[in-house]
Each structure stands twice: as C-alpha cells, then as structure tokens.
C-alpha cells in the first residue's frame, strides 16, 4: 500500500501499440506538494505515460492510485473526482482560439461548477492577475506571445485550484532563455499555490534546478529516481549517458550563441 503522503502512485504501467512496447512496466511515487520531473529522451514514452495517467489512453496493464485510492480507467466516479482535482498543461497549450483569455480561463469553471457568472468572472480575473495577465483578459490567444500563452494556459490550469498539475513538455520549441523562464514560473507558482507538479521534459539542466525529485524514463522503464543532486552525481550508466548528451548539446548551443564554429567531435 502506498504511504499516506503519496498523492500519485503508479505501479507496473504497461502500454504497447501493435507490437511496439512503449511503456514496459513504469512505477512511480509522487509525494504531495512536490515538484516532480520525469526526464527522458524523445520517444522514451513520456507523452504516452502522461496520457495513460490522464485517462486519454487505456493502459494495457498496471495500476494507478490517486490520493490513496485506486483509479481505474473505467471507474467513472473516481475519474470524475480525479479530473476535478487535477489539471493538465499541454505541450502546445491547447487554448481555445475562438475565446478570449478570460473566457479561456473561465471555461473549466463554467462547464464543471455551479458558480454564477459574477463569481466565475471574479475567479477568472483573479487567476489572470496572479499570473500577471489581467491586462490581456480581452485578447485572443493568437494575439499573445508564446510566453504569455504559456502563462494563460497555466492560469486556466490553476483556476480550478487543483492539487496536482501535469506539465507535458512545457518548454518544447522554446529557446534556452524562455525554457529557464518557464521552469522558474512553474517552480514559483508551484510553491505559491502549493499544488503538486508532475512535469515530463527532456530539458535536463532546467529540470534539475526547478525540481524536488527527478526520475529518468528510458526505453519504457524508470531507470533512475532521486533528488536532482543524486541525479547529477549518479554513476548509473543510463543517467550518465543522458546527462552527457544533454550537456554536449548545451555546450554546442552556447557555442552557437557565442558565434563560434562547432566541431562535430566536441559533441
């Protein structure tokens, strides 16, 4: 049985598509109030893992527990409660482009709660203000910059006051500076609102700074789990390989920024 302070408990999760095994028995324990990051190279099955947790994909086997209770794929009541206590932040934000910023934030309240219009508006504006987005409340997502869209998506995720927020590749497609800013934003609001954050990403450097715990997903298995400090010093070969390749990429990016020539054998 999972310990009582565990918010999310995953055991032996398996999923394959056709003959291709994507998740080969993933086990993970996420403590309450923790900033947890699942690292992994592209194609390691991070997105599939998240979709299995969200109930978008049906896992082939394994069990998921939320707040000490089992969460079956077909258990409607448990799923509904899970959804009302969790939020997802999608890789490309999944904002509704026909709705204004405020309407986007108000959408989950409008559709899943019995609050009246005035209260919904007040809570939506409050969420926007907390993310310093309130002067853009009448803008459409298309009129906002990438960073502001990210913040808007986070505002929509926290407006329901969730206990657990999932971040799917929050920094995909952003430059290193923006990546830092996004992780700083997640860490800041995670502490401010006290939600538990589960992030999947392949950005090692940023993730290590901003997380309480990290796990490495490789070839459908959890290859390592521990604190960022343990991750940096671990001599687990899988961890080292991933760390080194990420560092090499970081070095060459830094070199490009300095305008130097890159020698392929450096990498």
């Amino acid at each position: 049985m999972p310990a009582p302070d565990l918010l999310l408990h995953v055991k032996d999760l398996r999923k394959s598509f056709g003959g291709r095994v994507v998740l080969a028995g993933v086990g993970l324990d996420v403590p309450r109030g923790c900033a947890f990051t699942v690292l992994g190279p592209s194609g390691a099955g991070k997105s599939v893992f998240l979709k299995c947790l969200a109930g978008v994909l049906r896992p082939d086997a394994g069990e998921i527990g939320f707040d000490g209770r089992p969460l079956g794929f077909d258990d409607r009541a448990a799923r509904a409660e899970f959804r009302s206590r969790c939020s997802f932040l999608f890789q490309n934000n999944a904002l509704f482009d026909s709705l204004t910023a405020l309407e986007n934030v108000a959408l989950p309240l409008e559709q899943t709660t019995d609050l009246d219009d005035r209260e919904i508006r007040a809570r939506g504006l409050e969420a926007l203000r907390q993310l310093e987005m309130d002067e853009h409340c009448d803008h459409y997502p298309g009129q906002l910059s990438g960073g502001m869209q990210k913040r808007l998506a986070l505002a929509r995720a926290i407006v329901t006051r969730p206990e657990l927020v999932f971040f799917d590749e929050p920094t995909a497609g952003l430059d290193p500076l923006r990546r830092n800013a996004v992780f700083a934003m997640i860490a800041k609001y995670q502490r401010q609102f006290g939600f538990t954050a589960l992030t999947v990403t392949h950005d090692v450097v940023e993730a290590l700074v901003a997380s309480d715990r990290v796990a490495l997903l490789d070839h459908g298995m959890i290859g390592f789990e521990g604190t960022p400090a343990e991750f940096s010093t671990s001599d687990n070969p899988v961890v080292r390989g991933f760390r080194d390749s990420a560092e090499a990429l970081g070095r060459s990016l830094a070199a490009i920024r300095r305008g130097e020539n890159i020698h392929p054998d450096d990498a």
Partner: peptide
C-alpha cells in the same frame, strides 16, 4: 474548426478538464 481543435489537443484538453 473541430478538426483543428482535435489537432491542437483542444478536445483532449476539454476531456481532461472533465468537460
């Protein structure tokens, strides 16, 4: 419109919000 909403995960987003 629905196709683009499906494509940009807006429909999945709705489902995860419990809508």
């Amino acid at each position: 419109e629905l196709g683009i909403q499906r494509n940009s995960e807006q429909i999945v987003a709705l489902e995860t919000m419990g809508v």
